[in-house]
Amino acid sequence: MSRQLSDVEDVLQNALNKHGLSVVPLLQEIQEHFRYLPEEVLRMLSRKTGIPLIEIYHAATFYNSLSLTPRARHQIKICAGTTCHIRGGGKLIEEIFQVLGIRPGEITPNGEFMLETVNCLGCCAFAPAMVVDGKYYGNLTPGEVRKILSKLRERAALMEK
């Protein structure tokens, strides 16, 4: 890990100045900085504040938007809302498994893609919907998902070259 100890100290101190000992806002702040909740940072937080590690872990695993796993280069979010479900959202998840071999919560071995589901993206009129790296796609079919993924892979391969 290239993480500098002094950087981590700064992040923690800043978060503490802002939020005191409120666990969830502290974790949100840490996640905003590191894009996930690294274990060693949570251990430091516990040592520094005296908040038991189990309490920190409890909060980190309770809330959907907090993540203990690092992010991949491309973040795929499939809407798992009710409308998307009845309009075929499950098929999109299955398609991604067929193409990338990952299930929700997993990352491809090369660290390229991560698949997540979200409870609702709130754009039910365009169900089923997906967000890749912040870009929304609506009215999707498995075939279209496959096209989007292969475009992303092509681009990634080009960048490698």
Partner: peptide, 10 residues
């Protein structure tokens, strides 16, 4: 607002 399929409040 946590209900899937609802975005009135948003």
């Amino acid at each position: 607002e946590g209900d899937p399929g609802a975005f009135m409040d948003r």
